[in-house]
Design a protein around this nucleic acid. Structure first.
Length: 231
DNA sequence: CCCTGATTCGC
DNA sequence: GCGAATCAGG
């Protein structure tokens, strides 16, 4: 298999969508995940949170132990890649700091308003281990929200005649996956995004849910996730 | 062990 | 340029 224009394009988009190298390799077929990673590098695609960090960053972080990034004098203008939103995240919902969802009580939690994310270069601080911190107001979007096992609500806008394929993805349309990669009908929501988010308003509602106190939590609302891959 | 991405290096 | 082998963290 060779890296045709189209395959490279697919690679780019899948990579930017936060899919793993393994998934990309499976989807493309005929290549190993190593090949995908290697190609991604050669293409200069943005690196992703890797388990392996340079020993450099680690020793540096260790050298300055109890030194939280507080009085940041001049955060190095860490270049924010064109796609600042995609960060691979585990399936499980992380303790979402705040979401644009109405919550009855807000004790001391950071009341973050859905501020418009500037699309210019973003200044970021770098945490221990070299990971790039989110700025206040930013939400770590689960790159892969664990596709719903059954397509529920969101009906792609009528603007989408057929389906939104991987190659149709851009920053303006909802990247919420419907189905699983590799399946014949796998596609993306394709609705127009909730500005500042990778998903449309409806799917943002799925992706970002306010973390309620356990005692107040309704037992079983969350269902649509975790469908076992059928393959 | 499994997974992940990064890097190296022979081709 | 390519990608298997290897490395190393979670």
């Amino acid at each position: 298999m060779s890296w045709t224009e189209e395959r490279i394009d697919t690679l780019r988009k899948m990579w930017n969508s936060g899919l793993t190298a393994t998934q990309i390799a499976e989807e493309l077929g005929g290549v190993s995940r190593n090949a995908v990673i290697g190609k991604a590098h050669r293409l200069g695609l943005p690196s992703r949170p890797s388990p392996v960090k340079s020993s450099e960053a680690k020793t540096a972080a260790a050298a300055a132990p109890a030194a939280p990034v507080e009085p940041k004098p001049a955060p190095p203008p860490k270049v924010a890649a064109p796609a600042p939103e995609v960060v691979r995240a585990p399936v499980e919902r992380a303790p979402a700091p705040a979401a644009p969802a109405p919550v009855t009580a807000e004790p001391a939690a950071a009341p973050v308003e859905p501020r418009p994310v500037p699309d210019g270069p973003v200044l970021r601080s770098v945490g221990p281990g070299g990971f790039v911190r989110q700025n206040p107001g930013e939400q770590a979007p689960p790159a892969q929200p664990a596709p719903p096992r059954r397509l529920v609500p969101a009906k792609p806008s009528d603007a989408i005649a057929g389906k939104t394929s991987l190659l149709d993805l851009n920053d303006k349309i909802c990247k919420w996956p419907l189905g699983h990669p590799g399946e014949p009908d796998f596609h993306f929501c394709g609705d127009k995004v909730n500005p500042g988010f990778p998903y449309c308003v409806a799917h943002c509602g799925h992706a970002y849910q306010a973390q309620l106190p356990r005692r107040d939590r309704r037992p079983p609302p969350p269902l649509p996730f975790g469908g076992p891959r059928v393959r």
